[in-house]
Design a protein around this nucleic acid. Structure first.
Lengths: 204, 204
DNA sequence: AAACGTATGTCACTAAGTGACACGAGTCAA
DNA sequence: TTGACTCGTGTCACTTAGTGACATACGTTT
């Protein structure tokens, strides 16, 4: 049996991102995206509710990878230990690196493309829900608990701000970042923003 | 000379909100909004980039009123004192109360209307920028400072979560809230989420 | 009164997005 | 093998979202 293949939406997402970066959002049509991805435009509209939302899968696998990976964060390790253990430079495939660059360039484009910002915020909101589950697990409370939701949202916001900050620095200021450096900043931001004690090992 | 009149977009915003609530977003067209507001549809598209974004002015004046009012927060008062002083039940006009109800019903609708959620998040993002300025002022730092942005974003997120929480409780659980109660929850959430010391009086 | 900026309406147009139906590829059961 | 069943996709006609270009009206300034 074959390993389950990559989400086809992600492929389209990459093409959409390239086009948005090259020509701007307004100048690329749904037909352009469909043509670049080798699909009928009908399929594109089946994949995505709007052309801007076509970049959401890319955000999810790349910029929001840290957020998504927190789902498997074991109870008995700290945030720093876990992040450094799970996302390691030597494990990055060329494809992942390319996705990262693409996503970072997109995030740096947000100030000029409000339509993309709404896709970005929607992606972050999706990740927020999964982070809320993490917080619930680590605090032995419900996902509907107000303080749990507040903490999860604050943590997600911290990740978003770090992401935007790094993307801006990397693209406009041409600064370079190593992966461990990025991980450190993410972990530190999570720690700062946590309003509940989730960052250190918790009792099983 | 007459006092400057209300933003005409807000009027349209109210009509759009009513229609979205009555029929759902998908079932109300730009023409419907234009007709309800007594404008040509061309003017509606001049006011708003998309039909969903038509509710943003309503969010801004109502749900995000607290956030916006922080712009005038004096350095020498605490968050609790200021909020209680500036938004008082007896000052609420009937129109403001109606707007509040409308906005709360919209926020409660977010889980079922993803298109509205993106408008909501964009409104919150706009408010985030103004909160970042408040944080900068109270910490005597720049708005570009990373920690300032992080704190501002965390505070805005807290306000958003309280808002969503209250809206859900009010609509689905039919709970009732007094304004002082809401203010207390907002102030408490701001205090919890602040990652910099902005909530108490700061040195001039 | 003339000249100006700003806000709106009209109308024709492009592009975003949907509904309905057909087609082909992969199960799965007999 | 066959037939029925699902699932993803393509085709095409259609509706609605959204824009560009131009005309008109109103309040200000001079």
């Amino acid at each position: 049996m074959p390993a389950d293949r990559e989400d086809p939406r992600l492929t389209v997402s990459r093409h959409a991102a390239e086009l948005f970066l090259a020509r701007g959002v307004a100048a690329t049509s749904g037909d352009d995206i469909a043509a670049a991805a080798g699909l009928s435009k009908r399929t594109v509209w089946r994949y995505f509710r709007s052309k801007e939302s076509a970049v959401e899968p890319l955000f999810a696998v790349s910029s929001l990878r840290f957020a998504n990976q927190l789902s498997e964060w074991p109870l008995d390790v700290s945030i720093e230990t876990y992040l450094h253990a799970v996302v390691r430079p030597q494990d990055q495939t060329p494809r992942e690196i390319a996705d990262d660059i693409l996503a970072v360039r997109l995030v740096a484009l947000l100030p000029k493309e409000p339509a993309l910002r709404s896709a970005w915020l929607m992606s972050c909101h999706a990740a927020e829900e999964t982070i809320i589950e993490v917080v619930a697990r680590r605090t032995r409370r419900w996902t509907t608990d107000f303080d749990v939701r507040l903490c999860g949202a604050a943590v997600m916001t911290a990740l978003r701000i770090v992401d935007e900050d790094i993307a801006t620095a990397a693209i406009t200021d041409r600064r370079e970042f190593t992966l461990p450096e990025v991980i450190d900043r993410m972990a530190e931001a999570i720690r700062t923003a946590s309003t509940l004690p989730i960052c250190d090992p918790v009792a099983p």
